[in-house]
Simulated scan of single mutants.
Amino acid sequence: MTIDSQRVDGIDAGDGRTVVVGLSGGVDSSVAALLLKQRGWRVVGVFMKNWEDDDDEEYCSSRQDLIDVMSIADRIGIDVEVVNFAAEYKERVFAEFLREYAAGRTPNPDVLCNSEIKFRAFLEHALALGADKIATGHYAGVRPDPAGSGRVQLLKAEDGSKDQSYFLHRLNQAQLARTLFPLADLYKREVRRIAADAGLHVAVKKDSTGICFIGERPFKEFLMRYLPPQPGEIRALDDDRVVGQHDGLTYHTIGQRKGLHIGGRKDGKGAASGEHEAWFVAAKDIAKNILYVVQGHDHPALQKLAIEVEQLSWVAGEAPHPAWVYTAKTRYRQPDAPCSIERIDPADNARCTLAFAEAQWAVTPGQSAVLYESRVCLGGGVIV
């Protein structure tokens, strides 16, 4: 990596400027704060409290996370403020999350959480504190456009196994221009080593998973608290015969195999006829409350060569050139798949068709389709 007087390891020199870092109590945000302080930034930490409905020890770790944040801040030598965004989270993220599930789709709350809370409510609060920049422990990168357009670009992280640009694709120019991603060029193992060398006890802390800010919990039981069961038939898509019963379309997603309770061998293998192959969710009829399933992982109903995408959001503020070839992900951790933008709605630029070179498996309405040009994240939208 080229090193000059203004940049070391991809992090701008702070020169006393103020950066407000979102601290979660994990190793990633802790190391982000540490690196920024080492580069001469005046670092202020903010711990966001965004979920209050059942903040208990069983599923929500916010109490322990706050203890970890305070310990880290003391070790690094920075101030920390606790901010409650629970009302904003419930209104901007969780309400939409429930609406999408109620409509039979499978939303990705992390995408909305980033655009509405971590890089909107948090950014606004940080600017009010006098911040020059904000920073998080996300694995992604941001840089000025090499073409000299004056814009900034969102990049994939160096550590492809941890890259989170998929979840950040709705960020706009104003948000990204104020953002630093100190972990852009680091691998997770390096982040843990830096934390250990600095004596940060979170160096070995387990990564958090589950719903953004809500935590790890039995997901179906959690949804049932807000969206009551609506039992209906499970039918085979190929011959329309009834093969089982479901508790509610809300609790199922395209490509789902487990939890259907309608047989099929666990290994997905069976007779040549396919009689004993595993069942997969292939479609939902919302009006009739029917869940349609097919047998076999490679069933044609689970393969899509073209998909419709709406609620488009482009990092550059405008759509990429429709005639060029890009890559896209239709779900997180999916390998990049070559595609082209077949059509963009000329009326409002809010809907497009993506055509893929190879069929995509179990494309799920409500999830995000995100476009890339090499390492540059261009943006994306919600799969119809």
Results as ranks from 00 to 15, higher is better:
Ala347Ile: 09
Thr179Ala: 15
Gln360Val: 11
Val142His: 01
His299Lys: 01
Lys205Val: 02
Ser71Trp: 08
Ala32Val: 01
Ile3Met: 12
Ala184Trp: 14
Lys90Glu: 15
Leu371Ala: 09
Leu223Asp: 00
Phe85Ala: 06
Glu277Arg: 14
Val83Ala: 14
Tyr166Trp: 03
Asp348Tyr: 13
Asp285Thr: 11
Val31Asn: 05
Ala174Gly: 07
Asp79Glu: 15
Asp56Phe: 00
Ile262Leu: 14
Val83Thr: 05
Lys156Asn: 12
Ser30Trp: 05
Arg170Cys: 13
Glu308Pro: 01
Glu124Leu: 11
Leu249Ala: 12
Pro229Thr: 13
Lys37Glu: 10
Leu180Ala: 03
Arg192Thr: 06
Lys206Pro: 00
Cys212Phe: 14
Leu237Arg: 09
Glu308Met: 02
Asp163Phe: 06
Asp239Gln: 00
Gly160Met: 09
Cys339Arg: 03
Glu158His: 13
Thr209Pro: 00
Asp15Asn: 15
Ala282Gln: 05
Gln256His: 05
Thr2Arg: 12
Glu116Asp: 00
Val242Glu: 13
Val31Pro: 02
Asn84His: 11
Gly381Gln: 05
Thr364Met: 03
Ala355Tyr: 02
Ser62Cys: 11
Glu233Gln: 14
Pro182Trp: 09
Gln6Trp: 10
Asp53Tyr: 13
Asp110Tyr: 01
Gly40Pro: 10
Asp12Ile: 01
Phe356Asn: 08
Val69His: 03
Glu52Pro: 00
Ala73Met: 02
Ala174Arg: 13
Phe219Ile: 14
Gly264Gln: 08
Leu154Arg: 09
Leu227Ala: 04
Ile234Glu: 10
Ala126Tyr: 06
Ile211Asn: 01
Ile344Trp: 03
Ser5Asn: 13
Val19Lys: 06
Arg170Gly: 04
Glu318Asp: 10
Asp12Trp: 03
Leu378His: 09
Pro109Tyr: 01
Gln334Ile: 02
Ser115Met: 02
Gln311Glu: 15
Leu378Trp: 04
Leu34Phe: 10
Arg241Phe: 08
Pro322Arg: 11
Cys212Trp: 11
Met70Ser: 05
Tyr326Ala: 07
